[in-house]
């Protein structure tokens, strides 16, 4: 007898197409799993409106459930509540850091930075130095900004808050 928890554990094996060290579940994209008779409905939400990896994630989720012997799969898209980086677990944030991406701060801090009320300190994921500078608000993918460490001189990505 398959349960919704079993399906969740399958989905935890699907890596984010752009940042493969965390899963689509850890990213917070999977919002709901419903099992009715033999039909599975997975509700997902996009990170950014134009996230090009969204289609890939939907295909991966569908394929994963098919692999486990369920053929009737529906993927639903929801926009509310809007995705936030606060849904990324602390454990996943640590995985991001080890991977070389500075993890997002809590969004309340980021809001103050965006309004110019507070300075942001983004620590270098390589050497841990707090002496870093933002090179560009926009980086290699929609969810990242580009930073440089002034101590070890390595450039790195910062997963920006949303």
């Amino acid at each position: 007898m398959i349960t919704e928890n079993d399906i969740l554990s399958w989905l935890k094996e699907i890596p984010d197409p752009e940042i493969p060290v965390i899963s689509v579940v850890e990213l917070g994209v999977v919002r709901k799993i419903e099992l009715n008779n033999s039909k599975v409905t997975v509700t997902v939400t996009p990170t950014y409106s134009g996230c090009p990896a969204m289609k890939q994630m939907e295909d991966d989720i569908r394929a994963k459930i098919h692999e486990n012997g369920i053929s009737d799969v529906e993927i639903k898209m929801t926009y509310s509540p809007a995705w936030t980086t606060d849904w990324i677990t602390d454990e996943a944030k640590e995985k991001l850091r080890v991977y070389g991406i500075a993890p997002p701060e809590h969004s309340t801090i980021d809001k103050k930075v965006l309004m110019g009320l507070q300075e942001r300190v983004v620590k270098c994921p390589q050497c841990g130095s707090a002496v870093t500078e933002m090179i560009s608000q926009f980086g290699s993918t929609a969810c990242k900004s580009l930073y440089k460490c002034k101590d070890c001189l390595e450039p790195f990505d910062y997963f920006k808050c949303l």
């Binding site: 996009p46 950014y48 409106s49 134009g50 996230c51 090179i135 560009s136 926009f138 980086g139 290699s140």
Partner: peptide
């Protein structure tokens, strides 16, 4: 280069919004 990325990202956000 940074602005190439920035304007491309803005375009992507807008196309995503247009899609919805």
């Amino acid at each position: 280069l940074e602005e190439d990325l920035a304007l491309g990202n803005l375009a992507l956000d807008l196309l995503g919004q247009a899609n919805s």
